[in-house]
């Protein structure tokens, strides 16, 4: 089955033919978006994290066909007019990555957490990021980055 599907991708409408065998990562690759990338292929590492209708999901476990009509956001959509998202900047400041392969997934999950919880505890940070793996093990820096992003955001909010 191939189907012509339409969806919003980082706020812009797109439409394309998608085969039943394609997952969301395959579909996004065809849009030249490589930030969501397949690694474990089992939804366990989080490298393929994207947001569908406002919630993060594993792109490798999402049927391409199911993107039809959806609001799809990828890491590439976080940067607004050349300005990094608060989480992206915090990851740079904290040195929260090494090879960078898992980083988009962590950034997406962290930004989702901060959208839900104003001042997450370390346990909440860990629970939210427990489904993302970093083989370089930048975990201490990642926790520090998320903490710093939350603090920075609440400081902004108070201004």
């Amino acid at each position: 089955m191939r189907q012509h599907i339409s969806f919003n991708l980082n706020g812009r409408p797109v439409s394309m033919d998608v085969g039943a065998h394609e997952d969301a990562v395959d579909v996004l690759r065809r849009r030249n978006l490589f930030g969501a990338r397949e690694s474990c292929g089992q939804g366990l590492c989080g490298c393929c994290t994207i947001k569908v209708d406002g919630v993060p999901v594993s792109g490798c476990l999402t049927l391409g066909l199911k993107l039809d009509g959806a609001e799809v956001e990828t890491v590439e959509g976080l940067e607004r007019e050349g300005v990094l998202d608060i989480v992206q900047q915090a990851f740079i400041d904290a040195g929260a990555f090494q090879c960078g392969f898992c980083t988009p997934g962590f950034v997406m999950m962290a930004s989702d957490l901060l959208a839900r919880v104003e001042a997450p505890t370390d346990e909440q940070i860990k629970d939210h990021l427990a489904g993302n793996l970093c083989r370089c093990a930048a975990y201490p820096e990642i926790i520090a980055a998320v903490r710093a992003a939350a603090e920075k955001r609440s400081a902004h909010a108070q201004v």
């Binding site: 930030g35 990338r37 990828t74 990094l84 900047q89 040195g95 990555f97 960078g100």
Partner: peptide, 21 residues
């Protein structure tokens, strides 16, 4: 000096080039 990695911006925006791409 604690220089942030030169490729930082590419990595957090998902735009770093890997052979994968």
């Amino acid at each position: 000096r604690d220089v942030p990695r030169l490729e930082s911006r590419r990595k957090v925006t998902g735009r770093a080039d890997y052979v994968h791409n």
